[in-house]
Simulated assay, not measured.
Amino acid sequence: MWVLAWNNPSLHTPERRKTWLACEEHREHLSAFLGARGFLKDVVALAEWESR
């Protein structure tokens, strides 16, 4: 599983992160969706996200 951390700069403060979980199959598609809008901030493995 992957964590896609994002925010909408017109709605959220720069440090705020919303998250979506994605399986390997959908990670690239969802990353492209968020990236095209300028929302994607980080993509990390779930285990790494939980250890932060």
Rank of each mutant, 00 (worst) to 15 (best):
F39M: 07
N8L: 07
E48M: 00
N8G: 05
R16T: 15
R16N: 11
S31C: 10
A32R: 15
A45W: 03
S51T: 12
A36R: 15
T19L: 02
H12W: 02
L21D: 07
W2Y: 15
A45V: 07
G38A: 10
E15N: 12
S10M: 10
P14Y: 06
L40G: 12
H29P: 02
A45H: 11
A22V: 03
L4I: 00
N7P: 01
S51L: 09
L46M: 10
A47K: 11
S51P: 07
F33Q: 08
N7Y: 02
G35E: 13
E28D: 15
E28L: 12
H12F: 01
L30E: 12
R16L: 11
A36E: 14
L21W: 02
A45P: 00
E48I: 02
M1R: 10
S31E: 15
E15V: 04
L30F: 14
K18R: 11
H29G: 08
E25V: 03
E25T: 11
E15M: 06
G35Y: 14
S51H: 11
F39T: 05
S51V: 04
S31Q: 12
A22H: 00
L21I: 11
R17I: 03
L40H: 13
E15T: 06
C23M: 06
A22Q: 04
G35A: 10
R37D: 12
L21N: 08
P14W: 07
A32I: 07
R27K: 15
R16V: 15
G38I: 12
A22G: 00
L46K: 07
G38M: 10
E48L: 04
E15A: 09
K41P: 01
K41S: 01
A45I: 06
E25A: 14
E28C: 04
L11F: 03
R27S: 06
